[in-house]
């Protein structure tokens, strides 16, 4: 069908005009990276405005997708046009992935008898983390920018809160929402995952279950400690803790309110541009990392690299000295 040969510019024009197929294909190009992704980045960079970027994270099974689905429902009812980027892990062994977030978000939109969505409706895209270290850190901001450029606002990024890249991606959003549930260990567990530091809004989901109040109390205590240890950013903003039960929709309006309030406060404090700056810096860094990473890979699997690995294996060299030798090669010092 030659669909892969369609020029990026043409697809971009179509996507801006509301063509969902074109947008879907552009997102594929972004995921694959390389020159086409850069070209899309150039186009989107010009048109992107200032969509509200919301990150939602939490442990597997905490109800992120269900909550996202509820928020989407709420936004649609208010004639807002959100986009969702749902990130799920790829298998490191096979590169395959089961992307199962849509199934929990789709409830309302897909069962409508009226048929396919209109151009003014939500757009949901699933993204696998794929193999590249750092690939996700590049693809997510690019996809967000594309959504923004073609007119979606807000943009919700949903990702499981494991892995530094995943946490970073959410942490770089305008508003980071961390979803907790009863029965998953106390807040110390969440502390370990590094999720507490990035949260702008806490959601205690499954609040109808026993132990929900304990989770809230633990979180409150942790927030008190942030105050004591001076981890607060000095703005006086304290992340609210919102109780909800996403599956029956209880409290989801409160979640949205807390998210919207946070954006307003960011604006009032003049901190939104700081977040953006942080985000842009992170993206530049990730892009560099990715470029370096592939050069390192080339080297390490080259003849020179194999020899160094052998040296380290037969103990004629330490792995760190082998790494130093690779670095020398990389920097052209040898």
């Amino acid at each position: 069908m030659g669909r892969q040969l369609q020029p990026v510019q043409e697809m971009y024009r179509e996507a801006k005009g509301g063509d969902r197929r074109a947008l879907g294909r552009l997102l594929t190009r972004i995921e694959r990276g390389g020159p086409p992704a850069d070209e899309i980045g150039e186009l989107a960079h010009v048109d992107a405005g200032s969509a509200h970027v919301i990150g939602i994270t939490g442990a597997p099974g905490s109800g992120k997708s269900t909550l996202t689905g509820r928020l989407v429902e709420l936004l649609r009812d208010n004639d807002v046009r959100p986009a969702v980027l749902a990130v799920d892990p790829s298998s490191p062994l096979t590169g395959g992935a089961i992307l199962g977030d849509r199934i929990r978000m789709e409830g309302t939109p897909s069962t409508e008898p009226s048929g396919t969505r209109s151009t003014n409706d939500v757009f949901i895209r699933s993204m696998a983390t794929r193999g590249h270290s750092g690939g996700l850190a590049v693809a997510v901001p690019q996809a967000v920018r594309l959504f923004d450029a073609v007119g979606y606002d807000p943009i919700i990024i949903e990702t499981v809160g494991v892995g530094q890249v995943e946490v970073d991606v959410v942490g770089a959003a305008d508003t980071a929402v961390v979803v907790m549930t009863p029965g998953m260990g106390d807040a110390v567990q969440a502390n370990k995952a590094g999720l507490l530091e990035v949260a702008d809004v806490f959601v205690v989901n499954k609040a109808d279950r026993p132990g929900a109040d304990d989770v809230r109390r633990d979180l409150d205590l942790m927030l008190d400690l942030s105050h004591v240890t001076g981890q607060e950013d000095g703005s006086g903003y304290r992340p609210p803790i919102v109780m909800c039960s996403a599956i029956d929709g209880d409290g989801t309006t409160d979640v949205w309110q807390a998210v919207a309030d946070h954006l307003e406060i960011l604006g009032k404090l003049g901190r939104r541009h700081i977040r953006r700056r942080h985000r842009i810096r992170a993206e530049i860094r990730a892009t560099l990392n990715q470029a370096l990473d592939s050069r390192i890979d080339d080297l390490i699997y080259s003849e020179v690299g194999e020899r160094l690995v052998s040296d380290a294996q037969n103990a004629s060299r330490s792995p760190s000295s082998a790494a130093a030798a690779v670095l020398d090669h990389l920097l052209g010092r040898r």
Binding site: S90, S91, G95, G96, I98, L99, S110, A128
Partner: peptide, 16 residues
């Protein structure tokens, strides 16, 4: 399909 290296977008039951 996942184990064959594919990305599966799983929609599950009652789709139209």
């Amino acid at each position: 399909l996942r184990d064959a290296g594919m990305e599966v977008i799983y929609l599950g039951l009652r789709q139209t």
